[in-house]
């Protein structure tokens, strides 16, 4: 075993989880350092929530290992959990408690010393913008406020790792901006794992991206790495474009889609490289080829390409 890295907050090794015969998460390994915000992406049912439940000790992995700040989740679960703040998909709120009572309870359960409790509650409320609803019952709050109370309970004990499962669902655009700012701020001193469907959100707040698909980790890189992701799509530029069917009829092409500026996005068929055939066809048909290059990827391209491909094959 390598020496525990002070900076490393999360380390998951070969994490696997089966539900009966179905493999929900298959040998997922990753690690996270202090100050990083990790965007965890994947289609519905890909295993995002299962992975998060394992990281937070809500589900036992079928195989594999989880370390939180060097503490093994399976050997010393309570010590490891004390360093995590978790907001599940459904915020776990007691509707018949007031916001203050609930946050005090969260603080006490997460080992916040009694003397610091009042301060911790105030700070968490302030950071989440719920300072003015402390005396109200949680059940009487709107969805957006409830969501923010959920985030407040996850950060009340100043955890090393904050895990948020779709935190901006149900919020209005202003609140979303506030929460994103908060997540960026949290990323300064803590590690944040953020699961979401909203791709621009990842571009705004995360500095690392992971995509999970059918239980497998199919992509893991920094946000900068996304744009250099060598996808299999090609961008084809023609000054004198023929009807789109003519391009699609070139052998080895699965799909053609017009893009801006006279460009076409070409999806090659599996295991083929249609570059030569395209050049030849452009020459023969006098299409005036001016560009043929791998497509520069956005997160959306990467996401669609990696999570869509297997279904079309």
């Amino acid at each position: 075993m390598n020496a525990p890295d002070q900076n490393q907050t999360v380390r998951a090794t070969e994490l696997t989880r089966n539900f009966g015969d179905r493999v929900a998460v298959n040998k997922v390994s990753f690690s996270l350092n202090r100050g990083e915000v990790l965007g965890f992406l994947g289609p519905n049912g890909a295993g995002k929530t299962t992975t998060m439940q394992m990281l937070t000790g809500n589900l036992a992995p079928s195989a594999g290992q989880i370390e939180i700040c060097g503490i093994d989740m399976l050997d010393r679960p309570t010590d490891a959990k004390a360093r995590i703040g978790y907001l599940p998909e459904t915020p776990p709120l007691y509707r018949d408690l007031t916001v203050n009572e609930f946050l005090q309870l969260a603080g006490r359960l997460h080992r916040v010393p009694k003397k610091e409790l009042a301060g911790a509650v105030e700070r968490a409320k302030q950071r989440c913008g719920i300072g003015d609803v402390g005396q109200r019952l949680i059940g009487a709050l709107s969805k957006g406020y409830q969501q923010r109370v959920g985030i407040a309970q996850a950060i009340i004990h100043n955890p090393d790792v904050v895990i948020l499962d779709e935190p901006t669902v149900g919020l209005d655009p202003n609140q979303i901006r506030d929460i994103r700012a908060l997540i960026r701020e949290l990323g300064g001193a803590h590690s944040v794992i953020l699961s979401t469907h909203i791709l621009p959100e990842v571009e705004q707040v995360c500095n690392r991206v992971q995509i999970i698909h059918k239980g497998l980790l199919v992509f893991a890189d920094t946000l900068g790495g996304v744009s250099s992701f060598k996808g299999r799509s090609l961008m084809l530029g023609l000054r004198n474009p023929p009807p789109i069917e003519a391009i699609a009829s070139v052998p080895g092409i699965a799909h053609v889609e017009p893009a801006r500026g006279g460009l076409f996005r070409i999806e090659p068929a599996a295991d083929t490289d249609p570059t030569d055939a395209l050049v030849q066809a452009a020459w023969d048909g006098k299409w005036s080829l001016f560009q043929l290059a791998p497509a520069v990827s956005s997160i959306e391209d990467v996401f669609v390409q990696l999570t869509h491909r297997e279904e079309t094959v």
Partner: peptide, 14 residues
């Protein structure tokens, strides 16, 4: 039923 069990299980409690 209210999915608040997660709150207790995620807390450092056995």
């Amino acid at each position: 039923r209210n999915q608040t069990m997660t709150f207790l299980i995620s807390a450092p409690l056995s």
